[in-house]
């Protein structure tokens, strides 16, 4: 078992993602370069259960469909750098839009925690969220926290640890589309799987292919070339 592992923080802007990042890592932060070289991401550390958890703060984005550099950076990190756990931070007071991003992450990777932040704010506004039902529906842990008041951190860190040690197995719910899209996915996914050999979710890649996300394919070609020699 490794003594350190990586957790990536994804989320919409204005969800308190930075507050969570700051609260978890304290002042032990630095800006580290990663594979992309040109892009630097804030990185911090937290010790938990005798292990060092490296936390990477991804840019806050509305989606991961590579409409902007920030979105590409966040998406590339999750897909290609493969953090051990991806934490999606959601704003409890505007879950509808926040789920849009969370669902995209669930399509991309397996070890995901849905972290509903600003739960104190939601309480004030009379919003109650059934996280157990959401956990069942999404197939990954859903945890309510308040980064501001530092509540829910123990459960959050424990859950991260349990995913890392394999005590919790994430089985993200598959999002089904209209029959027309599903038919096209069925046409192309087997070919993708043959090609990628499970290194990346073939269903997700199939969807991105259908969507015509050429920046992803440039990225894939670049990385495959690097791997090949």
């Amino acid at each position: 078992m490794k003594n350190s592992y990586t957790v990536a923080l994804a989320g919409n802007p204005n969800t308190g993602k930075s507050t969570l990042f700051n609260a978890l890592t304290g002042l032990k932060q630095h800006t580290g370069n990663w594979a992309g070289k040109t892009v630097s991401l804030a990185e911090g550390k937290v010790e938990h259960k005798g292990k060092t958890v490296r936390i990477i703060d991804l840019p806050g984005t509305y989606s991961l469909f590579s409409n902007s550099t920030d979105e590409e950076v966040a998406r590339n990190y999750i897909v290609f750098e493969k953090p051990d756990v991806t934490l999606v931070v959601l704003d409890a007071t505007s879950l509808e839009r926040n789920f849009n991003l969370a669902l995209q992450v669930l399509e991309m990777t397996t070890n995901v925690i849905i972290c509903i932040n600003l739960i104190d704010e939601a309480d004030k506004q009379g919003i109650s969220i059934n996280e157990k039902a959401l956990t069942r529906k999404l197939g990954v842990p859903v945890i309510k926290i308040s980064a501001r008041n530092k509540t829910g951190f123990t459960l959050l860190l424990d859950t991260i640890d349990r995913i890392h040690t394999g005590k919790i197995v994430c089985t993200p719910e598959i999002i089904f589309y209209d029959e027309e899209i599903e038919r096209k996915i069925r046409q192309i996914e087997p070919l993708v799987r043959e090609y990628l050999e499970d290194s990346i979710s073939s269903r997700w890649v199939a969807l991105r292919l259908l969507d015509g996300d050429d920046s992803l394919f440039q990225q894939m070609e670049k990385r495959l070339l690097v791997k090949g020699g």
């Binding site: 509305y62 989606s63 469909f65 409409n67 509808e96 839009r97 849009n100």
Partner: peptide, 11 residues
């Protein structure tokens, strides 16, 4: 283009 996709992302 980008504006349409951005609007979609925002709901």
């Amino acid at each position: 283009g980008v504006m349409r996709r951005r609007l979609l992302d925002l709901g």
